[in-house]
Simulated scan of single mutants.
Amino acid sequence: MSRILELEGVSKRFGGLTAVNEVSLSVEEGQIYSLIGPNGAGKTTLFNLISAVLAPTSGRIVFDGRDITRMPTHALARLGIARTFQNLAVFKHETVVNNLLVGLHTHLGADPISAAFFWGRARREELKARERVEEIIDFLEIEDLRDHVVGTLSYGQQKRVELGRALAIGPRLLLLDEMVSGMNQEEREDIARFILDLKEELGMTVFMVEHDMGIVMDISDHVCVVNHGRKIADGTPAEVAADPAVIEAYLGTKQAA
C-alpha cells in the first residue's frame, strides 16, 4: 500500500501554548486510521491542521505526494479530502436530498448561461449529481428520509446526513471528527458498519478522531495516540492497548498500595 497522508514534524502554537508538538505520522491508502488521546491532548487541533481549518506553525502536511500545508479548505475538497464535524454542520431547513447535493458543488462547472437555462453541460451535471445522491442515500439506508427536512430528524439521522454530504465529494480521504458522539448504541453500530463498508467496498481511506474505544479497537487498522500535544504511541489496536505510555496517559500512574 502507498502512503496517502503524511505529517512531518507538525506543530501548532497559540502564543505561549504548544497545542501540537512536532507530530509525525503516515496513513496508508485504504486504512481506517484512528487518532485518540485524553481530553485536551491536541486531537482536535491536529485534525484542524490536516483539514486546513488551522495553519501549522511549523512542519509539512502531504497528501498523495503533494504538499498541502498552506492550501485552503476548498482546495482540499477538490483534491479529494472531505470532513465531518463533531458539532453538526448541516442545513437544517433543507431536505436530505438538498443537503447531499451541496456536497457535489465541487464537481459542478457549467457556465452561468447553461446553468440558467438548464441545458447542455448543466443538464448533464445535474442529472449525474442526482444519480450520485441516490447512490449515497441507498448506501446509508436513508431512503425513507430523502425528502424530510433535516431539522426534523433525530440527532443520529442528522449525523448520517452529514456523512452523506461528505461522501458526495467523492473523497479519497475521509476525515471523521467524533462521528458517533451523542449517538445511542444502535446508531453507533450502524456508523461503524458504514465505515467498514467505505473501506471494504469503496477502498476509501478513513482518518478518524474518536472517543469510543470500542469502535476504535474493533474497526481500526492503525491507531495513533497523542497526549499533551505529542505523539506517544502508534501501531495496531492491540499494540497500542498494551503500551505502558498509553495506559498511563489514560489511567494515570499506578499508585503503590
Rank of each mutant, 00 (worst) to 15 (best):
T95G: 09
T73V: 10
L35Y: 01
V102G: 08
H93G: 12
L54T: 02
F85Y: 14
P56W: 05
I113H: 07
V53A: 08
A52P: 01
I50S: 05
A129W: 06
L101H: 08
D67L: 14
D111M: 01
A41V: 04
A129M: 11
R60A: 05
P112Q: 10
A89V: 07
E28R: 14
A129Y: 04
R121K: 14
T69I: 05
T44D: 01
Q86T: 02
V97I: 14
I61G: 00
T57C: 02
E94F: 12
R78I: 13
I61A: 02
R78A: 12
H74Y: 15
G103S: 06
T73F: 07
D111W: 09
F91C: 15
H105D: 12
K92H: 12
H107E: 07
F63H: 09
T45F: 00
L76V: 07
S114G: 14
S114F: 11
L79G: 10
P112H: 07
S34Q: 03
R78E: 13
H105E: 13
A115M: 10
T73A: 15
A55M: 07
G42P: 00
L127V: 12
A75F: 11
I36T: 00
D111S: 06
G42N: 02
E29C: 10
G65A: 15
V53F: 11
I32F: 02
K128D: 10
S34P: 02
L104H: 10
H107W: 11
V102I: 14
L49G: 01
